[in-house]
Design a protein around this nucleic acid. Structure first.
Lengths: 166, 166
DNA sequence: AGTTATTGGTTGCATGTGCAACGATAGGGG
DNA sequence: CCCCTATCGTTGCACATGCAACCAATAACT
């Protein structure tokens, strides 16, 4: 992975963190790379922020969902989602219908225009993913997803905050 | 992974993105989880931001490195690193020595105080990582790192911007 | 050498983000 | 039925971030 030679002998202090092997770091770098690349698609073309994109994709998949659910599932702050929702609503891409049973929360859904965008976007996102994971075999892809799943589940338990999702 | 049932039948539109299987999403969620958890260690205890933490760890491992290298390696914007470096220098945790051969760039290094912090932090970071990956077998851990490596390498090539690292 | 293009790094500005406080609603005891 | 607590969502505020413009130094070209 370059950046000169990554020698592993004891150069300086003792219990060292080797960035090339440090999983949180590697994970974040990879996440940034994919996130940035993917963002080019939905940002440049439809002016969506990351949170907005996530709202749209979620509603594209699930029809109805509350802001809280989306936030918890994606490990995002509720204020972040709140603002994304406000902006999407203003643009007429989503609508909220207050929940009769619990009037604190609102169910979100795509408007026809919102769904139009989603349907233009979804194939591109999938194509991007396809290109992105094409260096791995099918087998490896499945394996990767399963490893990520287990790590995420575990990490959610370790999380101190009550953001343990729905 | 909860959040109700993730049925895969055709509920709405056609080429759908299934969040639970969509790798960029999963990757980012996992990265957030680990990042947040790890940040608790170095933020609460030493007031380091994520970029600052990265600078410290890099210099802990490599002794000397330029701001540009650190930015490229971690896929961060150069202004982000610039500010982190300025802040760390002000706090007396790192020092810069201008490069005689190319006076545009400066080599960064930890001061003794900076190294002290690093040496307090490194074991904790490693312990965190240990806890974090403890759900996976050694074998799986190696595999995961290798998969991430290959994906990162590939993603860097796909990256449009010239941030192809050092 | 002289002009032009690149590159490392900094900074002003506009925007995004987390946090804490808040309003409104809901749930649980007494 | 009332009070106390918890929860969904919004908002003001401080701070972080990306971008573009910029400076200084270097490289490239003629």
């Amino acid at each position: 992975m370059a950046w000169q030679t990554a020698e592993k002998k004891q150069e300086v202090s003792d219990p060292r963190v080797i960035l090339e092997d440090f999983l949180p770091y590697r994970l974040n770098v990879l996440a940034s790379l994919t996130s940035n690349a993917l963002a080019q698609i939905y940002a440049e073309r439809f002016g969506l922020s990351i949170p907005a994109w996530r709202v749209v994709v979620t509603l594209g998949q699930y029809e109805y969902r509350t802001a809280r659910d989306i936030a918890a599932h994606g490990v995002m702050h509720k204020s972040t989602i709140s603002r994304a929702v406000a902006s999407l609503e203003q643009r007429g891409l989503i609508a909220r219908r207050p929940n009769k049973d619990d009037r604190r929360e609102a169910l979100l859904e795509l408007t026809p225009e919102g769904r139009e965008i989603y349907e233009a976007l979804a194939p591109e996102a999938l194509a991007f993913e396809e290109r992105f994971v094409s260096v791995l075999t099918e087998e490896e892809q499945r394996l990767l997803v399963s490893l990520i799943d287990r790590l995420s589940g575990h990490a959610r338990q370790l999380a101190p905050e009550g953001e343990v999702e729905e």
